[in-house]
Design a protein around this nucleic acid. Sequence first.
DNA 1: ATGAAAGCGCTAACAC
DNA 2: GTGTTAGCGCTTTCAT
Lengths: 330, 330
Amino acid sequence: MARRVTIKTIAEDLGISHMTVSRALSNSTNVRRETRELIRKRAAEMGYVKSAAASAMRGDATRIVGLLVPNLVNEFYARFANTLALLCEDNDLHLITHLTNDDPNRERLALMKLQELQTNAVVTVPAPATQPHGKQLFQGMKPIQFIRTQPLPFASDSIVIHDAEAIRQAVGHLVSRGHQRISYFGGHASLSSGRQRKAAFLEAMEAHNLTVHEGLIQTDSPSFEMGARKAAAVLAGQIDSSAIICGGFEISNGALDACLRANAVFPRDVAFVGYGDPGFYRWIQGGITTISLPIDQLAEQALQRLLQLDPDAPVQQHGFAAEFILRASA
Amino acid sequence: MARRVTIKTIAEDLGISHMTVSRALSNSTNVRRETRELIRKRAAEMGYVKSAAASAMRGDATRIVGLLVPNLVNEFYARFANTLALLCEDNDLHLITHLTNDDPNRERLALMKLQELQTNAVVTVPAPATQPHGKQLFQGMKPIQFIRTQPLPFASDSIVIHDAEAIRQAVGHLVSRGHQRISYFGGHASLSSGRQRKAAFLEAMEAHNLTVHEGLIQTDSPSFEMGARKAAAVLAGQIDSSAIICGGFEISNGALDACLRANAVFPRDVAFVGYGDPGFYRWIQGGITTISLPIDQLAEQALQRLLQLDPDAPVQQHGFAAEFILRASA
DNA sequence: ATGAAAGCGCTAACAC
DNA sequence: GTGTTAGCGCTTTCAT
């Protein structure tokens, strides 16, 4: 491979100083029109690409931004990453996506790798953590907490879901269909989203004068496997419940998978309310009732936060309402 | 935010030369044990992170690698990206994913952005192109063509699918169920994968002495929308066919969506063979018969190609066999 | 309108 | 075993 084309290469080629080339290529006014056009033309011919490394070293913003999500297999995260990636490309941001698997260690490593590259900002779905990350991990990087929030050593932007009302509607609907022993599978209390969704569920149950019997509330680190395990327990009668409400993307998919594996028929064997709305929910057994999130709005807001790199800008916290989608499964 | 911690910061803090710090942090032998440990300790305390920009400027490999896929919504690409991302993290590679939407323009822009960052290698699902990209787009970047291949100005690594046998089995199975007017929806001839899959289909039809009637072969730029449109045409009787074989991920999902929207029942109304095996295919109407790809092996091979940065290494072309998965829909 | 020098963080190549 | 210098590509500052 030929050596990289730099402004000096072009300068030599044209027999001028590299400074003139620099000016010509960065829209400075102090270059003769002809000279500028000549330089531009030659640069294009030679395949010049400005070195991001050199700019970064000078202290310019790298326009590198990060996205930390648990995975890309869950359609919610995939769609969000997809939309955000397109928005970033249209706004000249370099987006680097890392997967945390909801593991604080992977999260830490990802943040360190982003730091090496002088990433300017990072949208992160914080992993369930026993202790908050030190501020060192965010040196020079603006964090934007997404979906969940974790305490940070400084105030940070956040984008979260207001799903209390949707959960209330889910419970209300199930009650109207005669369910009383409604179970809830969610993330545990180390997650802000886990706490809030559980609280919303309890509140809704109370509003309908329903007793939350032993075993109806199941919380744990949110995962496909956890959802599958709990749903299997319901189907096996180990958890005495006629309806399931899921409080997490992974949990929802896992619970659904377990039900279908067991050949359960909704809502005959159990009523099912999912969380998140992957495309195929519409096609499973006439449609999975679920709680849907406004992915495009979330991505658009994330982009706005990513573009705001001014460290003195006031912290912004945004919430978006989830929607209860009634289909056949409950 | 405090200024970045560099080797000089640490050197000043310790009253030594920055070279000693550099040596201590990069495992050079020429540092006294004590000194090295002291430096290491202080560096950790101060939150030192090596500047990738400075290393890049010196000409070291950036260990940045790229992935260009049409989108992340299709579960095949999402799963592949997911697996590859985890592998890259474990191998200390920075993976940057760009979405092309199968649009050569987006592809070009993505390659240019990767070039700015001095990306070392890129796994790409080439977009349908009218003319091949110039070699300038790949200056300093090793391309690894994935799934499809496009002519490049130089030989390149590739990882493709051998699906002829699976397609043959699909046709054979449909014939055994009495189908004769079998239709095929695939990518058009500007794609290597489109050409090959269509050829495999034609060959299989011929092997069973079936006539490929007018309209049974439908090829176009592969998209969800195209699959949906063609499937709708079959259901509406505009294409006279009792069975559909899909030859692309997007096409498959689109065709499936259209069938389900129209409340079609497989295989009563039409027999359906998909392409790719998203998790939910298993749960739709007792299971979608499909052609499955070995995602983990593909990702593992992609990683191996990404790790091989030696420009003088011989070009490698790898093929993996697809598998015909028989379920209820055909 | 153009050029020369300096410095961003790092390490190879030389001193000593 | 440790220090000094130089240079990677770029732009800001200061000449001319």
